[in-house]
Design a protein around this nucleic acid. Sequence first.
DNA 1: GAGTGGTCTAGACCACGAG
DNA 2: TCGTGGTCTAGACCACTCA
Lengths: 251, 251
Amino acid sequence: MTASVSTRRHVIADDLRRQISSGHFKADERLPSEAQLATHYTVSTSTLRSALALLQGEGLVEKIHGDGNFVRGPLRKITYTGGAATSASWTAYFAPIPMTARTTSIEAPSHLATLLNVPPRSRLTELLYLAHEEKVPHGLAYIYVLDSVASVTPPAVTTSPEQRSAPIVAPCPALVEVQERISARLPTEEEAMTLRISVSLAVLSLTRVVTDFYGRVVDAALLVLPSDRADVLFTTSLSIEERTQVHDRER
Amino acid sequence: MTASVSTRRHVIADDLRRQISSGHFKADERLPSEAQLATHYTVSTSTLRSALALLQGEGLVEKIHGDGNFVRGPLRKITYTGGAATSASWTAYFAPIPMTARTTSIEAPSHLATLLNVPPRSRLTELLYLAHEEKVPHGLAYIYVLDSVASVTPPAVTTSPEQRSAPIVAPCPALVEVQERISARLPTEEEAMTLRISVSLAVLSLTRVVTDFYGRVVDAALLVLPSDRADVLFTTSLSIEERTQVHDRER
DNA sequence: GAGTGGTCTAGACCACGAG
DNA sequence: TCGTGGTCTAGACCACTCA
């Protein structure tokens, strides 16, 4: 399973990985300095750093400039629950986690106008959510609501860090379809900054568009979820009728 | 929007990005050699290479050892359609794309036994799919079917590269629930090899578990999708009854 | 064999964090 | 201020591709 490549950096990374998982280096512990490790493995600091970069990409090591390299304790993963089965309130998707929110009124830039299927520069409200746990950010969400469609304005959105599960986006009467497109990528510098992650740690990027009965877009959301502390779950049930249809189609 | 960091490698990467998007370097074209580029930007080859690494992580540049660095033409993205709405046949999820398949009979290792909720070393069939288009791999799927549950054995699974949308996993009579968990990560060396991608290009990792009416796991699947050529789409509709329920709950 | 990218070195110097 | 990691250099040598 392991082995595969045998460059010096991979050998060193494998050794450090082993020492971490065996408990020789414990969670939240500071590793020896890069200079010390380089001496210990008799490699140059550059090579040692590229070994650490591998572990960093796996989320095993966190580098803090000017301080040290730290073993990352296993972070509790939060789960974004996809689909339209739950209520239309956003915070419900990350149930027991506190969020900070910020509301801004903006004019739709072109990419959002396309997504929302409205003319550019339409008025809309941007809600920025930051889910966090013990000061560790777990997710970033940009939610866009068309001012002309939202039947209810967001109630009492504050920047209080302890706000919990307040319904933010009021359900639109004729809401019928939710479309969620998910991709993986590396974070932008800005996202890495906000989420306090390395630029080499992959994120899930989820675009969610809610359409009402008339095909109008009610709201759109862009979520950025660090791969080491969040994932996405979809649970789909087949109703009796659907099951029958599938069987018919298979015959 | 851009700017942010201004190290030499970022400046160089920005410049190359601009030249690529402006058409100065065209798709599938070979870039000047790293030595030439390093001279042109008056930096060391190491710095130049780290600039290229940024572009590689974005999927803009493909490095080929011993040959050169190439501008990557925009790859057509395939879409994995999640949910249980479509038929239970696997190839249907990537409708018009050819796949190669391989069938192996194995004993469940512990992590699969956990996933499938069966005793370790149970007999099961592993199906390995490789979706590709013009020899470019677009996805990798490991599908596990319990021998004791599968009511119909896979019909005519071949390794023919041109096989199209043959139903592989026969629908189990009482199939009722599909659970799909999605995460992002960097690929393993092995996956990078198989999918012919860089280890610094993020992949989507999707675990799908199909449960039947009695709560038994019918099959499990692990999908690995390179972020530059595949994404995942879920479309969920609220039925009238469900919408009523949501409204009731909100009141 | 000529030319390409891949790995690695042994430094220098800069930027950041904590005491 | 001191020790840490971050950036960068100017090479050497290896591994690969292609003619």
